[in-house]
Design a protein around this nucleic acid. Structure first.
Length: 128
RNA sequence: UGAGCAGGUUGUGUAAUAGCGCAGUUUUACUGUGAGGAAAGUCCGAGCAUCACAGGACAGGAUAGCUGCUAACAGCAGCCGGAGGCGACUCUAGGGCUAGUGCAACAGAAAGAAACCGCCCUGACUUUUUAGGGUAAGGAUGGAAAGGCGAGGUAAGAGCUCACCAGCAGUGGGGAAACCCAGUGGCUAUGUAAACCCUAUCCGAUGCAACACCGACAAAGAUGUAUUCGUUGGUCCGACGGUCUUGAAAGGUGGCAGAAAGCAAUAUGCUUUUGAGCACCAGCGGCGACGCGGUGCAAAGAUAGAUUAUUACAUUUAACAGAACUCGGCUUAUAGAUCUGGUCAUUUU
RNA sequence: UGGGGUGUCGCCAAGCGGUAAGGCAACGGACUCUGACUCCGUCAUUGCAAAGGUUCGAAUCCUUUCACCCCAG
Protein backbone atom coordinates (compact mmCIF):
# COMPACT_ATOMS: atom_id res chain seq x y z
CA UNK A 1 0.00 0.00 0.00
CA UNK A 2 1.25 3.42 -0.91
CA UNK A 3 3.01 5.29 1.87
CA UNK A 4 1.59 2.91 4.40
CA UNK A 5 4.03 1.14 6.66
CA UNK A 6 2.74 -1.87 8.55
CA UNK A 7 3.88 -3.40 11.80
CA UNK A 8 5.30 -6.84 11.20
CA UNK A 9 7.06 -8.07 14.32
CA UNK A 10 5.28 -9.62 17.23
CA UNK A 11 7.59 -7.58 19.51
CA UNK A 12 6.21 -4.32 18.18
CA UNK A 13 2.63 -5.47 18.68
CA UNK A 14 3.41 -6.40 22.27
CA UNK A 15 5.01 -3.01 22.83
CA UNK A 16 1.82 -1.33 21.64
CA UNK A 17 -0.36 -3.48 23.88
CA UNK A 18 1.67 -3.07 27.08
CA UNK A 19 3.18 0.41 26.83
CA UNK A 20 0.62 2.10 24.64
CA UNK A 21 -2.53 4.00 25.53
CA UNK A 22 -5.78 2.51 24.39
CA UNK A 23 -9.35 3.59 23.77
CA UNK A 24 -12.18 1.11 23.33
CA UNK A 25 -15.47 1.20 21.48
CA UNK A 26 -17.97 -1.59 20.61
CA UNK A 27 -16.72 -1.48 17.04
CA UNK A 28 -13.03 -0.67 17.32
CA UNK A 29 -10.18 -0.66 19.83
CA UNK A 30 -7.17 1.57 19.15
CA UNK A 31 -3.72 1.30 20.75
CA UNK A 32 -1.25 4.13 20.27
CA UNK A 33 2.41 4.39 21.24
CA UNK A 34 5.10 6.80 20.01
CA UNK A 35 7.97 5.36 18.01
CA UNK A 36 11.31 7.02 17.23
CA UNK A 37 10.88 7.06 13.47
CA UNK A 38 9.39 9.50 11.04
CA UNK A 39 5.91 8.55 9.97
CA UNK A 40 3.29 6.24 11.41
CA UNK A 41 3.20 2.47 11.38
CA UNK A 42 -0.12 0.72 11.65
CA UNK A 43 -1.16 -2.82 12.46
CA UNK A 44 -4.58 -4.40 12.23
CA UNK A 45 -5.60 -7.34 14.40
CA UNK A 46 -8.53 -9.53 13.40
CA UNK A 47 -8.70 -12.55 15.62
CA UNK A 48 -10.47 -15.78 14.77
CA UNK A 49 -13.07 -15.01 17.41
CA UNK A 50 -14.81 -12.33 15.36
CA UNK A 51 -15.85 -14.62 12.54
CA UNK A 52 -15.01 -16.39 9.33
CA UNK A 53 -12.39 -15.42 6.78
CA UNK A 54 -14.87 -13.26 4.90
CA UNK A 55 -15.69 -11.25 8.00
CA UNK A 56 -12.03 -10.84 8.93
CA UNK A 57 -11.08 -9.65 5.45
CA UNK A 58 -13.97 -7.22 5.32
CA UNK A 59 -13.16 -5.68 8.70
CA UNK A 60 -9.49 -5.35 7.74
CA UNK A 61 -10.43 -3.46 4.58
CA UNK A 62 -12.87 -1.19 6.33
CA UNK A 63 -10.31 -0.25 8.94
CA UNK A 64 -7.68 0.40 6.32
CA UNK A 65 -10.01 2.60 4.26
CA UNK A 66 -11.02 4.55 7.35
CA UNK A 67 -7.39 5.09 8.35
CA UNK A 68 -6.48 6.41 4.92
CA UNK A 69 -9.24 9.01 5.22
CA UNK A 70 -8.37 9.92 8.81
CA UNK A 71 -4.67 10.30 8.05
CA UNK A 72 -5.39 13.25 5.75
CA UNK A 73 -7.10 15.28 8.46
CA UNK A 74 -5.07 14.76 11.62
CA UNK A 75 -1.66 16.34 12.08
CA UNK A 76 0.59 14.02 14.02
CA UNK A 77 3.34 15.72 16.01
CA UNK A 78 5.70 12.79 15.37
CA UNK A 79 5.74 9.10 14.45
CA UNK A 80 3.44 6.64 16.20
CA UNK A 81 2.74 2.94 16.15
CA UNK A 82 -1.01 2.44 15.93
CA UNK A 83 -2.72 -0.94 16.37
CA UNK A 84 -6.38 -1.37 15.53
CA UNK A 85 -8.28 -4.36 16.92
CA UNK A 86 -11.46 -5.35 15.12
CA UNK A 87 -14.63 -6.38 16.93
CA UNK A 88 -17.41 -8.69 15.65
CA UNK A 89 -19.56 -5.75 14.47
CA UNK A 90 -16.78 -4.05 12.55
CA UNK A 91 -17.59 -5.82 9.33
CA UNK A 92 -21.17 -4.55 9.39
CA UNK A 93 -20.05 -0.90 9.61
CA UNK A 94 -19.57 1.51 6.77
CA UNK A 95 -16.12 2.99 6.58
CA UNK A 96 -17.50 6.54 6.71
CA UNK A 97 -19.01 5.89 10.13
CA UNK A 98 -15.85 4.20 11.29
CA UNK A 99 -13.82 7.23 10.27
CA UNK A 100 -15.55 9.43 12.85
CA UNK A 101 -15.03 6.91 15.62
CA UNK A 102 -11.42 6.44 14.72
CA UNK A 103 -10.77 10.16 14.50
CA UNK A 104 -12.18 10.72 17.99
CA UNK A 105 -10.14 7.89 19.43
CA UNK A 106 -6.87 9.01 17.90
CA UNK A 107 -7.33 12.63 18.94
CA UNK A 108 -8.15 11.54 22.48
CA UNK A 109 -5.10 9.31 22.65
CA UNK A 110 -2.81 12.02 21.28
CA UNK A 111 -4.00 14.35 24.02
CA UNK A 112 -3.46 11.72 26.69
CA UNK A 113 0.01 11.10 25.43
CA UNK A 114 0.91 14.75 25.41
CA UNK A 115 -0.45 15.21 28.94
CA UNK A 116 1.55 12.27 30.22
CA UNK A 117 4.75 13.60 28.75
CA UNK A 118 4.21 16.97 30.39
CA UNK A 119 3.67 15.30 33.77
CA UNK A 120 6.82 13.32 33.40
CA UNK A 121 8.66 16.42 32.41
CA UNK A 122 7.45 18.30 35.50
CA UNK A 123 8.30 15.45 37.82
CA UNK A 124 11.80 15.26 36.53
CA UNK A 125 12.18 19.02 36.97
CA UNK A 126 10.80 18.93 40.51
CA UNK A 127 13.03 16.09 41.64
CA UNK A 128 16.15 17.70 40.29
C1' U B 1 -55.72 -26.63 -11.66
C1' G B 2 -53.53 -29.15 -7.41
C1' A B 3 -49.94 -32.56 -5.39
C1' G B 4 -45.49 -34.85 -6.02
C1' C B 5 -40.61 -36.86 -8.63
C1' A B 6 -35.89 -36.22 -11.23
C1' G B 7 -32.22 -33.06 -13.36
C1' G B 8 -29.87 -28.43 -15.07
C1' U B 9 -28.46 -22.99 -15.16
C1' U B 10 -27.43 -18.55 -12.47
C1' G B 11 -25.06 -16.99 -7.90
C1' U B 12 -26.52 -8.99 -8.14
C1' G B 13 -25.90 -5.27 -12.17
C1' U B 14 -24.66 -0.18 -13.83
C1' A B 15 -22.27 4.62 -13.04
C1' A B 16 -19.03 8.06 -10.38
C1' U B 17 -14.91 9.17 -6.85
C1' A B 18 -10.68 7.21 -4.17
C1' G B 19 -7.31 2.99 -3.69
C1' C B 20 -4.40 -2.15 -3.79
C1' G B 21 -1.59 -6.91 -6.02
C1' C B 22 0.60 -8.84 -10.48
C1' A B 23 2.35 -8.60 -15.76
C1' G B 24 4.11 -5.57 -19.80
C1' U B 25 6.21 -1.23 -21.77
C1' U B 26 8.40 4.26 -24.53
C1' U B 27 9.61 3.22 -16.38
C1' U B 28 6.55 6.32 -12.23
C1' A B 29 2.61 7.11 -15.73
C1' C B 30 -0.40 4.28 -18.85
C1' U B 31 -2.47 -0.44 -20.67
C1' G B 32 -4.19 -5.24 -19.41
C1' U B 33 -5.84 -8.41 -15.65
C1' G B 34 -7.40 -9.87 -10.64
C1' A B 35 -11.68 -15.38 -5.76
C1' G B 36 -15.76 -19.87 -5.77
C1' G B 37 -19.72 -23.31 -6.87
C1' A B 38 -18.47 -24.86 -3.18
C1' A B 39 -12.20 -21.39 -2.99
C1' A B 40 -14.76 -24.83 2.90
C1' G B 41 -14.24 -29.90 5.37
C1' U B 42 -9.33 -32.29 4.41
C1' C B 43 -12.67 -37.66 3.46
C1' C B 44 -10.45 -40.39 -1.01
C1' G B 45 -7.44 -40.66 -5.74
C1' A B 46 -3.38 -38.77 -8.74
C1' G B 47 0.53 -35.35 -10.56
C1' C B 48 5.10 -33.09 -8.68
C1' A B 49 9.56 -33.29 -5.25
C1' U B 50 13.19 -35.99 -2.05
C1' C B 51 14.79 -40.59 -0.22
C1' A B 52 18.03 -46.47 -4.71
C1' C B 53 14.89 -43.92 -11.72
C1' A B 54 11.60 -47.90 -5.38
C1' G B 55 13.65 -54.03 -4.58
C1' G B 56 11.76 -58.61 -1.42
C1' A B 57 9.25 -60.69 3.05
C1' C B 58 6.40 -60.00 7.42
C1' A B 59 3.48 -56.56 9.95
C1' G B 60 -0.11 -52.74 8.90
C1' G B 61 -3.94 -50.29 6.02
C1' A B 62 -7.87 -49.82 2.23
C1' U B 63 -11.84 -51.81 -0.86
C1' A B 64 -15.99 -55.62 -1.18
C1' G B 65 -22.90 -57.72 -6.15
C1' C B 66 -21.52 -57.71 -11.75
C1' U B 67 -19.84 -55.39 -16.35
C1' G B 68 -17.78 -51.13 -18.15
C1' C B 69 -15.61 -45.78 -17.97
C1' U B 70 -11.31 -43.29 -16.08
C1' A B 71 -4.47 -41.26 -15.40
C1' A B 72 -6.43 -43.09 -10.80
C1' C B 73 -10.14 -43.61 -6.99
C1' A B 74 -13.95 -45.45 -1.70
C1' G B 75 -15.68 -41.63 -8.02
C1' C B 76 -19.16 -42.16 -12.36
C1' A B 77 -22.54 -45.06 -15.87
C1' G B 78 -25.59 -49.22 -16.94
C1' C B 79 -27.43 -53.69 -15.00
C1' C B 80 -28.54 -57.69 -10.96
C1' G B 81 -30.40 -58.82 -5.92
C1' G B 82 -32.99 -56.53 -1.55
C1' A B 83 -36.33 -52.50 0.79
C1' G B 84 -40.05 -48.47 0.14
C1' G B 85 -43.83 -45.80 -2.93
C1' C B 86 -50.62 -46.09 -6.57
C1' G B 87 -46.78 -43.92 -9.74
C1' A B 88 -42.75 -40.73 -11.79
C1' C B 89 -38.85 -42.61 -8.80
C1' U B 90 -35.88 -43.20 -4.30
C1' C B 91 -32.63 -45.85 -0.79
C1' U B 92 -29.07 -49.90 -0.38
C1' A B 93 -20.70 -51.19 3.37
C1' G B 94 -24.57 -56.01 -1.01
C1' G B 95 -18.10 -61.46 -0.39
C1' G B 96 -17.60 -65.61 3.29
C1' C B 97 -20.62 -67.87 10.20
C1' U B 98 -21.57 -75.42 5.63
C1' A B 99 -12.70 -73.01 7.17
C1' G B 100 -11.77 -72.11 12.35
C1' U B 101 -12.27 -69.27 17.03
C1' G B 102 -15.10 -65.99 20.07
C1' C B 103 -19.66 -63.67 21.90
C1' A B 104 -25.25 -64.03 22.70
C1' A B 105 -26.09 -60.09 29.53
C1' C B 106 -30.92 -60.83 32.19
C1' A B 107 -34.77 -64.36 31.54
C1' G B 108 -35.40 -69.45 30.28
C1' A B 109 -35.25 -76.62 31.25
C1' A B 110 -32.17 -75.74 27.08
C1' A B 111 -28.58 -70.35 23.22
C1' G B 112 -26.39 -75.73 20.40
C1' A B 113 -27.43 -81.13 18.68
C1' A B 114 -32.09 -79.24 24.45
C1' A B 115 -37.24 -82.62 28.26
C1' C B 116 -39.19 -77.53 33.20
C1' C B 117 -44.54 -78.00 32.77
C1' G B 118 -47.46 -80.91 29.60
C1' C B 119 -48.88 -85.51 26.48
C1' C B 120 -48.21 -91.02 26.01
C1' C B 121 -46.44 -96.08 27.59
C1' U B 122 -44.55 -99.47 31.45
C1' G B 123 -43.47 -100.78 36.63
C1' A B 124 -44.21 -99.80 42.05
C1' C B 125 -47.94 -98.23 45.44
C1' U B 126 -52.79 -98.08 44.68
C1' U B 127 -55.69 -92.26 48.58
C1' U B 128 -52.19 -88.70 47.21
C1' U B 129 -47.83 -90.12 44.55
C1' U B 130 -43.19 -92.05 42.68
C1' A B 131 -39.25 -94.55 39.22
C1' G B 132 -37.83 -95.54 34.11
C1' G B 133 -38.63 -94.67 28.98
C1' G B 134 -40.80 -92.22 24.53
C1' U B 135 -42.23 -87.44 22.55
C1' A B 136 -40.42 -81.01 20.05
C1' A B 137 -47.85 -80.90 18.85
C1' G B 138 -49.12 -77.23 23.14
C1' G B 139 -47.45 -73.75 27.55
C1' A B 140 -43.82 -70.48 29.71
C1' U B 141 -38.76 -67.19 28.65
C1' G B 142 -36.44 -64.48 24.96
C1' G B 143 -34.50 -60.34 19.70
C1' A B 144 -33.82 -65.54 18.24
C1' A B 145 -36.19 -72.16 20.46
C1' A B 146 -34.02 -76.17 15.60
C1' G B 147 -37.51 -74.73 8.39
C1' G B 148 -43.21 -72.36 7.87
C1' C B 149 -48.29 -73.98 7.28
C1' G B 150 -52.09 -77.69 6.28
C1' A B 151 -53.37 -82.91 5.68
C1' G B 152 -52.20 -87.99 6.52
C1' G B 153 -50.07 -90.87 10.29
C1' U B 154 -49.24 -92.44 15.65
C1' A B 155 -49.74 -95.11 22.26
C1' A B 156 -48.46 -89.81 22.22
C1' G B 157 -45.60 -87.44 18.65
C1' A B 158 -42.06 -86.25 14.94
C1' G B 159 -40.09 -84.20 7.19
C1' C B 160 -42.07 -90.10 9.59
C1' U B 161 -45.02 -89.37 4.56
C1' C B 162 -47.41 -85.85 1.06
C1' A B 163 -49.04 -80.80 -1.28
C1' C B 164 -47.51 -75.53 -1.38
C1' C B 165 -43.75 -72.03 0.19
C1' A B 166 -38.45 -70.83 2.15
C1' G B 167 -33.31 -72.60 2.28
C1' C B 168 -29.08 -75.97 0.61
C1' A B 169 -26.63 -79.23 -3.07
C1' G B 170 -25.87 -80.69 -7.81
C1' U B 171 -28.43 -80.91 -13.31
C1' G B 172 -30.33 -78.47 -17.86
C1' G B 173 -31.36 -73.80 -20.48
C1' G B 174 -30.54 -68.26 -21.02
C1' G B 175 -26.91 -64.19 -20.09
C1' A B 176 -20.52 -60.89 -20.91
C1' A B 177 -21.31 -61.50 -15.56
C1' A B 178 -23.95 -60.56 -11.04
C1' C B 179 -28.14 -63.44 -11.70
C1' C B 180 -32.79 -65.44 -13.78
C1' C B 181 -36.03 -69.71 -15.34
C1' A B 182 -37.21 -74.99 -15.19
C1' G B 183 -37.35 -79.58 -13.10
C1' U B 184 -34.41 -83.34 -9.53
C1' G B 185 -32.45 -84.91 -4.81
C1' G B 186 -31.42 -85.48 0.35
C1' C B 187 -34.52 -83.58 4.36
C1' U B 188 -31.75 -79.00 6.59
C1' A B 189 -27.52 -76.28 13.36
C1' U B 190 -30.10 -69.56 15.06
C1' G B 191 -27.79 -64.60 15.01
C1' U B 192 -23.31 -61.74 14.85
C1' A B 193 -17.61 -60.75 10.32
C1' A B 194 -19.41 -51.79 10.86
C1' A B 195 -16.23 -59.48 16.43
C1' C B 196 -11.20 -61.80 15.55
C1' C B 197 -10.52 -63.94 11.10
C1' C B 198 -10.65 -66.18 5.85
C1' U B 199 -10.87 -65.11 0.47
C1' A B 200 -9.94 -61.76 -3.76
C1' U B 201 -7.76 -57.10 -5.41
C1' C B 202 -4.74 -52.80 -4.33
C1' C B 203 -1.10 -49.85 -1.40
C1' G B 204 7.11 -48.14 -0.45
C1' A B 205 7.64 -43.60 2.94
C1' U B 206 7.35 -38.42 3.59
C1' G B 207 4.64 -33.82 2.08
C1' C B 208 5.65 -27.28 -1.17
C1' A B 209 6.95 -25.78 6.37
C1' A B 210 8.54 -31.25 0.28
C1' C B 211 12.68 -29.77 -2.29
C1' A B 212 16.48 -26.92 -5.37
C1' C B 213 19.72 -22.77 -5.85
C1' C B 214 22.25 -18.12 -4.28
C1' G B 215 24.89 -14.90 -0.95
C1' A B 216 27.47 -14.41 3.64
C1' C B 217 30.37 -16.32 9.21
C1' A B 218 33.47 -19.41 11.87
C1' A B 219 36.17 -23.33 11.95
C1' A B 220 36.75 -27.69 15.39
C1' G B 221 36.32 -32.85 16.53
C1' A B 222 35.70 -38.16 15.62
C1' U B 223 35.96 -42.88 12.86
C1' G B 224 39.45 -46.17 10.00
C1' U B 225 37.27 -50.31 5.23
C1' A B 226 33.08 -53.76 7.70
C1' U B 227 29.04 -59.14 12.41
C1' U B 228 30.67 -51.47 12.80
C1' C B 229 28.66 -46.53 11.42
C1' G B 230 25.42 -43.77 8.39
C1' U B 231 21.67 -43.29 4.40
C1' U B 232 14.49 -43.34 3.93
C1' G B 233 9.13 -46.68 7.13
C1' G B 234 7.22 -50.58 12.36
C1' U B 235 10.72 -54.91 11.82
C1' C B 236 14.05 -58.09 9.01
C1' C B 237 16.61 -58.86 4.44
C1' G B 238 18.72 -56.45 0.44
C1' A B 239 20.95 -52.08 -1.78
C1' C B 240 24.04 -47.78 -1.52
C1' G B 241 28.05 -44.53 0.78
C1' G B 242 33.37 -42.93 2.48
C1' U B 243 33.55 -39.77 5.00
C1' C B 244 30.78 -38.47 9.22
C1' U B 245 29.53 -35.26 13.23
C1' U B 246 29.25 -30.38 15.28
C1' G B 247 28.94 -24.46 16.46
C1' A B 248 26.47 -19.77 15.35
C1' A B 249 22.61 -18.24 12.92
C1' A B 250 19.38 -15.33 9.51
C1' G B 251 17.91 -13.92 4.70
C1' G B 252 16.72 -13.99 -0.52
C1' U B 253 15.24 -16.37 -5.20
C1' G B 254 12.92 -20.38 -7.47
C1' G B 255 9.22 -24.21 -6.69
C1' C B 256 4.26 -20.68 -8.19
C1' A B 257 0.27 -19.84 -12.06
C1' G B 258 0.26 -24.39 -18.03
C1' A B 259 5.49 -26.12 -19.90
C1' A B 260 9.39 -25.85 -23.72
C1' A B 261 11.44 -23.79 -28.19
C1' G B 262 11.59 -20.22 -32.03
C1' C B 263 10.27 -15.51 -34.59
C1' A B 264 9.20 -10.26 -34.33
C1' A B 265 10.08 -5.38 -31.97
C1' U B 266 6.15 1.32 -30.80
C1' A B 267 4.61 -2.93 -26.51
C1' U B 268 1.36 -6.57 -23.52
C1' G B 269 2.17 -10.23 -29.99
C1' C B 270 2.68 -14.53 -33.36
C1' U B 271 4.09 -19.73 -34.59
C1' U B 272 5.26 -24.85 -33.40
C1' U B 273 5.46 -28.93 -30.09
C1' U B 274 3.62 -30.84 -25.62
C1' G B 275 -0.11 -32.01 -21.43
C1' A B 276 -5.13 -36.91 -17.39
C1' G B 277 -5.69 -28.79 -19.21
C1' C B 278 -10.80 -26.23 -19.74
C1' A B 279 -15.34 -25.11 -22.61
C1' C B 280 -18.49 -25.99 -26.77
C1' C B 281 -20.71 -29.16 -30.96
C1' A B 282 -28.31 -30.85 -34.53
C1' G B 283 -20.17 -34.37 -36.14
C1' C B 284 -18.95 -40.11 -35.63
C1' G B 285 -19.23 -44.55 -32.11
C1' G B 286 -21.74 -46.07 -27.49
C1' C B 287 -28.27 -47.34 -23.77
C1' G B 288 -24.82 -44.40 -20.76
C1' A B 289 -20.37 -42.83 -18.06
C1' C B 290 -17.10 -41.74 -21.94
C1' G B 291 -13.93 -42.14 -26.38
C1' C B 292 -12.54 -40.16 -31.30
C1' G B 293 -12.73 -35.75 -34.37
C1' G B 294 -13.30 -30.46 -34.97
C1' U B 295 -13.45 -25.33 -33.08
C1' G B 296 -12.29 -21.88 -29.41
C1' C B 297 -9.86 -20.43 -24.73
C1' A B 298 -5.83 -20.48 -21.17
C1' A B 299 -3.49 -13.16 -17.90
C1' A B 300 -5.46 -14.32 -9.81
C1' G B 301 -0.68 -15.77 -8.03
C1' A B 302 -0.39 -12.81 -2.65
C1' U B 303 3.83 -13.87 1.41
C1' A B 304 1.45 -10.49 8.16
C1' G B 305 -0.78 -12.11 2.97
C1' A B 306 -3.70 -7.84 -2.97
C1' U B 307 -8.34 -8.85 -5.52
C1' U B 308 -11.50 -3.30 -2.44
C1' A B 309 -13.96 1.26 0.15
C1' U B 310 -17.84 4.95 -0.30
C1' U B 311 -22.14 7.10 -2.73
C1' A B 312 -26.38 6.83 -6.14
C1' C B 313 -29.99 4.01 -9.01
C1' A B 314 -32.44 -0.65 -10.21
C1' U B 315 -35.57 -4.59 -6.54
C1' U B 316 -34.88 -5.55 -0.85
C1' U B 317 -30.96 -6.95 2.40
C1' A B 318 -29.07 -10.50 -1.69
C1' A B 319 -27.74 -16.73 0.64
C1' C B 320 -23.48 -19.80 1.82
C1' A B 321 -19.02 -17.95 1.81
C1' G B 322 -12.32 -15.75 0.61
C1' A B 323 -7.29 -19.01 -3.63
C1' A B 324 -1.98 -20.19 -0.62
C1' C B 325 1.83 -26.23 -5.16
C1' U B 326 -1.78 -28.19 -8.92
C1' C B 327 -5.69 -31.31 -10.85
C1' G B 328 -10.10 -35.42 -10.61
C1' G B 329 -13.94 -36.71 -7.23
C1' C B 330 -16.80 -37.08 -2.56
C1' U B 331 -19.09 -34.65 1.67
C1' U B 332 -21.15 -30.44 3.97
C1' A B 333 -23.35 -24.97 3.67
C1' U B 334 -26.48 -22.12 0.29
C1' A B 335 -31.30 -16.52 -0.19
C1' G B 336 -33.66 -15.70 -4.52
C1' A B 337 -34.55 -16.29 -9.74
C1' U B 338 -35.19 -19.52 -13.81
C1' C B 339 -35.43 -23.75 -17.34
C1' U B 340 -36.34 -28.94 -18.89
C1' G B 341 -38.50 -33.89 -18.63
C1' G B 342 -41.63 -37.68 -16.40
C1' U B 343 -45.86 -39.13 -12.64
C1' C B 344 -50.67 -39.17 -9.96
C1' A B 345 -55.52 -36.95 -9.06
C1' U B 346 -59.53 -33.82 -10.61
C1' U B 347 -62.18 -30.87 -14.27
C1' U B 348 -63.30 -29.55 -19.41
C1' U B 349 -63.22 -30.88 -24.63
C1' U C 1 -1.02 -25.08 5.34
C1' G C 2 0.06 -30.00 7.03
C1' G C 3 0.01 -33.68 11.04
C1' G C 4 -2.04 -35.60 15.72
C1' G C 5 -5.60 -35.84 19.69
C1' U C 6 -9.99 -34.99 22.95
C1' G C 7 -15.44 -34.29 23.84
C1' U C 8 -19.24 -38.66 29.81
C1' C C 9 -23.19 -34.52 36.05
C1' G C 10 -21.49 -27.60 37.68
C1' C C 11 -15.68 -29.42 38.06
C1' C C 12 -12.06 -33.77 37.92
C1' A C 13 -12.86 -38.26 35.75
C1' A C 14 -13.64 -44.46 35.41
C1' G C 15 -16.17 -47.51 31.97
C1' C C 16 -14.88 -49.18 25.93
C1' G C 17 -20.87 -54.31 23.18
C1' G C 18 -25.24 -56.30 28.22
C1' U C 19 -28.49 -51.79 34.61
C1' A C 20 -23.41 -45.12 33.22
C1' A C 21 -18.23 -46.49 38.96
C1' G C 22 -15.93 -42.85 42.17
C1' G C 23 -14.27 -38.02 44.26
C1' C C 24 -15.20 -32.60 44.88
C1' A C 25 -19.28 -29.30 44.78
C1' A C 26 -24.70 -28.75 45.50
C1' C C 27 -29.34 -30.10 48.14
C1' G C 28 -31.98 -32.56 52.47
C1' G C 29 -31.37 -34.75 57.31
C1' A C 30 -28.60 -36.24 62.00
C1' C C 31 -24.92 -34.43 65.66
C1' U C 32 -24.22 -28.97 68.13
C1' C C 33 -26.53 -23.41 71.83
C1' U C 34 -24.60 -21.96 66.57
C1' G C 35 -20.96 -22.95 62.72
C1' A C 36 -17.04 -26.26 60.98
C1' C C 37 -15.58 -31.47 61.10
C1' U C 38 -17.99 -36.20 60.94
C1' C C 39 -22.13 -39.59 59.64
C1' C C 40 -26.60 -40.86 56.53
C1' G C 41 -29.37 -39.98 52.14
C1' U C 42 -30.45 -37.49 47.18
C1' C C 43 -28.38 -35.88 42.40
C1' A C 44 -26.76 -38.18 34.48
C1' U C 45 -33.49 -40.75 33.12
C1' U C 46 -34.23 -41.95 27.66
C1' G C 47 -29.30 -39.30 28.40
C1' C C 48 -22.27 -39.94 27.23
C1' A C 49 -20.70 -33.20 21.47
C1' A C 50 -24.80 -33.75 17.11
C1' A C 51 -27.23 -36.70 13.23
C1' G C 52 -27.66 -41.29 10.64
C1' G C 53 -26.38 -46.67 10.28
C1' U C 54 -24.77 -52.05 11.95
C1' U C 55 -26.72 -55.11 16.08
C1' C C 56 -31.77 -58.47 19.86
C1' G C 57 -29.07 -54.46 22.43
C1' A C 58 -24.32 -48.89 21.18
C1' A C 59 -21.26 -44.05 25.68
C1' U C 60 -18.48 -48.24 23.31
C1' C C 61 -18.39 -50.49 16.38
C1' C C 62 -18.94 -47.63 11.36
C1' U C 63 -20.06 -42.98 8.46
C1' U C 64 -20.84 -37.73 8.23
C1' U C 65 -20.90 -33.11 10.86
C1' C C 66 -19.72 -29.61 15.13
C1' A C 67 -16.61 -27.62 18.98
C1' C C 68 -11.98 -27.45 21.47
C1' C C 69 -6.75 -28.52 22.28
C1' C C 70 -1.59 -29.80 20.92
C1' C C 71 2.79 -30.12 17.40
C1' A C 72 5.64 -28.26 12.99
C1' G C 73 7.85 -21.36 11.07
Amino acid sequence: MKNLVTIKLNKEYKRAYFQGKFKAHPVLVTYLVPNRQKGNKIGITTSKKIGSAVVRNRSRRVIRAAYLAVRERIVFPKGYDIVFVARPDTALMKSTKLEKIMEKQILFLLQENAAQRKKKFRKEKGSS
